[in-house]
């Protein structure tokens, strides 16, 4: 029961903090923001790894590996694209 309470608290708090922080991101960075949070949603890679933490059947292994591939694709792709995008943003006033 305590675990459940902690999980719900984590869910609600993370949502609220995320909401407050992201409300302050300027439109200039909305695309990179979405691209970055998209990469963060690849945190499902943790879930895919956890599938392998107990005994697995052949089918479960196959599905698990597929989940791993899509999640890491999302993770690596997302952060790399975001970085490429952010490298494009420049300002003469802020570049020394």
């Amino acid at each position: 029961m305590l675990d459940l309470a902690i999980m719900l608290a984590v869910l609600v708090c993370s949502f609220i903090i995320g909401y407050l922080l992201i409300s302050r991101v300027p439109p200039l960075l909305h695309t990179p923001l979405m691209s970055m949070t998209n990469a963060v949603s690849a945190v499902t890679v943790i879930g895919a790894l956890l599938l392998f933490a107990v005994e697995t059947t052949g089918l479960e292994k196959a599905l698990g590996v597929f989940a791993l591939i899509t999640a890491t694709f999302n993770l690596v792709g997302g952060f790399t694209i975001t970085d490429r995008m952010l490298r494009l943003f420049r300002s003469d006033e802020h570049h020394q």
Binding site: L11, V12, F15, G18, Y19, N38, V40, S41, V43
Partner: peptide, 14 residues
């Protein structure tokens, strides 16, 4: 898994 919950919730908020 708390980390999965928290990270997912932050993305949902965004």
């Amino acid at each position: 898994n708390r980390l999965l919950i928290a990270f997912g919730a932050v993305v949902a908020a965004s």
